[in-house]
Every structure is written in structure tokens, then in C-alpha cells.
């Protein structure tokens, strides 16, 4: 206790407390609008394909991964001069060794590329939720418009800071009557063939330009579908017709009813794989993002700090789990069905 009473620690503690008080009393941040789908950015579209903020994040993650990877292998030396090359080789060796432990040398060599691509891509996609500016820089639109398009009911008042507009923490909620009125007005305007613009917006909502890519279900389900289908392709390639037997697909004569049941279970487990892979990744990152939002909403300074550390860990862990499960699925697909050896 006496240690805490020395001037330096005391000053730090008082500073922290002051920061907490200031953040609670004066610096309040709005709770960002929490939406599941990636939000399309107006004016950014390729033909019919509207580019969403999660898609932009995906592209950023791609660019970061590619840039780091190409920088690492650009003019490689036998005795590494760049730290990046060193780190890259280290990572490659560690994970190749890990995969060798799981599936043997040949399989590790074949699929370490998929593993590392998934790991790097998901790692940067996940960690993007931690980068300042992402989720907080975007365009502002009236809450009425957002209600018509996305069903958002809570907006915020805005403040002009020079050329910039910022949301304040003053909440504006649309009451049930207002919602009805807005809906009616929007329908009338659209029936006349025009775009709906509220005359006097009560509040505004912010749609970020960039949102962590793995908070979009399309990405996680897409990747899960991809790797599960890929594992079946690998299974067919390596085992041929034997692989189909595991699902009791061609009902061969002499097959017992239990085999059909096992095949059915295998079918179901394939869907369970897709669901669990995609929702594990999505859920962790989405929930982590909401957690960070809510913590910053409660106390804007200090309180979110430990959660950033937690999310750093979770982001890595989920990327790793997704990649290692992919490898395990690939590896399992190359085993013939347990019953085959006994027949």
C-alpha cells in the first residue's frame, strides 16, 4: 500500500481516475449502428454489384497479405537480411511442422499453402476490427432513410467540425408513430418514381466505409462452403468411388441398413461442419466488435483497453482454428471409411 503512495504511482492513479471521470462526464461516444449485412457504399458499384464496406475490408486484407508476402520473398537471401523474410520463414516452418505432426509430411506439404493463406487472410481480416478509424469513419445519412432501407430506429444528432461532420452522443429514437409516417411517405415517394429524402431529418446514422470483413456472414459462409466442398474434391480424387461409399451414395447391394443410417449422419455432419465453421468465426468477431462498441459506449477511455487485448487474441485464435480445422477436414477426407477395411 505504501508503494502506491509514492508521488509517481499516485500521479498515475489519479491521472487514470481523472481520465475515467472525464470520459464518463464529458467524452461520450455514440453506439454505432449494429447491422448484420455488409452495408453498400453509395456511388461505389460495379454494374449491379454494390460494393459493401466489408468487401472493401476484404480487399484491404488481401492487399496487406499480398504486400507483406511479396515483400518477404522479394530478393530472398540465404542468410536473411530482412526481418520480414526471417519472420515469414519462421512462420512457414512452425506451421509446416505442426501440420506434419497432424497429417504427415506429404499432406502437410500439399496443404500448407491453403492453411497459411487462410491463416494470414483471416488474421488480418479479424484484426481489422481493432484498427482505429475503421467502423468510425464513414458517411452520414438521415435516420429516416436508414429506417426505410435497413430498419434502423436509433439516430444521433450531429455537430459540424469545420469540413467534417461528427455524431454526438445525443440519441434520437423514432417512435412508432414516426415510423408509420416515414414508411407511408417513403412508399408515396417511391410510387412517384423518386428516391426518398426526408425533409427535416430528426437524426443521423453513420455507415462506416470499412468494416471488419469477417463480420459479414457472406464471407464466413462462403469460405466454409469452399473448404468443405474442397475437402470432398480431395476425397474423391484420392479415394475415388470408395469415398462415395462413406455417404452410402451408390446403394451397393449387400449394404446393411446401418450403413444407410451412417451415411445419413455423414451428410448431416457435413452441413454441421459448414455451419459451425462459419458461425464460429463470424460469431467471435461480430461479438467482439459489439463488445468493443459497447465498452466504448459505456466508458470511452481505458475500459475498452483490456478488451482490445482480448480481441487480439480471439482474432488470432479464430483464424488459426479455422485454418487448422480446414486442414483436419482435408486430412479426414483422405481416410477411407472406417468400415471399409473390415469388409
Amino acid at each position: 500500500m505504501s508503494k502506491l503512495l509514492r508521488p509517481k504511482p499516485l500521479a498515475i492513479i489519479i491521472g487514470f481516475l481523472a481520465l475515467l471521470v472525464i470520459s464518463i462526464l464529458f467524452v461520450r461516444v455514440p453506439l454505432p449502428t449494429i447491422l448484420l449485412p455488409g452495408e453498400a457504399i453509395p456511388g461505389l458499384a460495379i454494374g449491379n454489384f454494390k460494393i459493401t464496406n466489408t468487401f472493401i475490408a476484404t480487399l484491404i486484407a488481401d492487399i496487406v497479405v499480398l504486400a507483406l508476402a511479396f515483400l518477404a520473398v522479394r530478393n530472398m537471401k540465404d542468410v536473411p537480411e530482412s526481418k520480414l523474410q526471417n519472420i515469414f520463414e519462421w512462420i512457414y516452418e512452425i506451421f509446416e511442422g505442426m501440420l506434419t505432426d497432424i497429417g504427415g509430411k506429404e499432406k502437410a506439404k500439399a496443404w500448407v499453402g491453403v492453411f497459411l493463406t487462410l491463416l494470414f487472410f483471416l488474421l488480418f481480416a479479424n484484426w481489422m476490427e481493432l484498427v482505429p478509424g475503421i467502423d468510425s469513419i464513414g458517411y452520414i445519412e438521415p435516420v429516416e432513410k436508414a429506417y426505410v432501407e435497413k430498419g434502423v430506429t436509433v439516430g444521433y444528432q450531429v455537430k459540424h467540425l469545420g469540413p467534417f461532420i461528427t455524431l454526438t452522443s445525443e440519441q434520437v429514437k423514432l417512435s412508432n408513430e414516426e415510423r408509420e409516417a416515414i414508411k407511408k411517405e417513403a412508399e408515396e415517394v417511391e410510387a412517384a418514381g423518386q428516391e426518398y429524402h426526408p425533409h427535416e431529418p430528426k437524426g443521423y446514422v453513420l455507415t462506416p466505409y470499412v468494416r471488419a470483413a469477417t463480420t459479414d456472414l457472406n464471407l464466413t459462409i462462403g469460405l466454409a462452403l469452399l473448404v468443405v466442398i474442397w475437402s470432398h474434391v480431395i476425397g474423391f480424387r484420392r479415394l475415388g468411388g470408395k469415398y462415395a461409399r462413406r455417404f452410402a451414395l451408390p446403394v451397393i447391394t449387400g449394404m446393411k441398413p446401418i450403413d444407410l443410417f451412417v451415411g445419413l449422419l455423414e451428410f448431416i455432419s457435413e452441413f454441421a461442419k459448414i455451419i459451425s465453421l462459419s458461425f464460429r468465426l463470424f460469431g467471435n468477431i461480430f461479438a467482439g466488435q459489439v463488445l468493443l462498441f459497447v465498452m466504448a459506449f459505456l466508458v470511452s477511455f481505458l475500459l475498452p483497453l483490456p478488451f482490445f487485448g482480448l480481441e487480439l487474441f480471439v482474432g488470432f485464435m479464430q483464424a488459426f482454428v479455422f485454418a487448422i480445422l480446414t486442414f483436419i477436414y482435408f486430412e479426414q477426407a483422405t481416410h477411407s471409411h472406417a468400415g471399409d477395411e473390415h469388409h
Binding site: L66, G113, V114, T117, F120, L217, L219
Partner: peptide, 23 residues
């Protein structure tokens, strides 16, 4: 849930491209 086949396919293609380049 925001599921949309276009986006889903675009993400798959995106990942394939990334994998192809790295590989």
C-alpha cells in the same frame, strides 16, 4: 442475415485469387 449469393461468390473468388497468387 445479409446473405446474398453474389457477395458469397465474390468472396470465394477473392479467396481463390489470393490463394492462387500466394501459391
Amino acid at each position: 442475415l445479409g446473405l446474398n449469393l453474389n457477395y458469397l461468390l465474390s468472396y470465394i473468388v477473392n479467396f481463390f485469387l489470393l490463394y492462387f497468387l500466394l501459391k
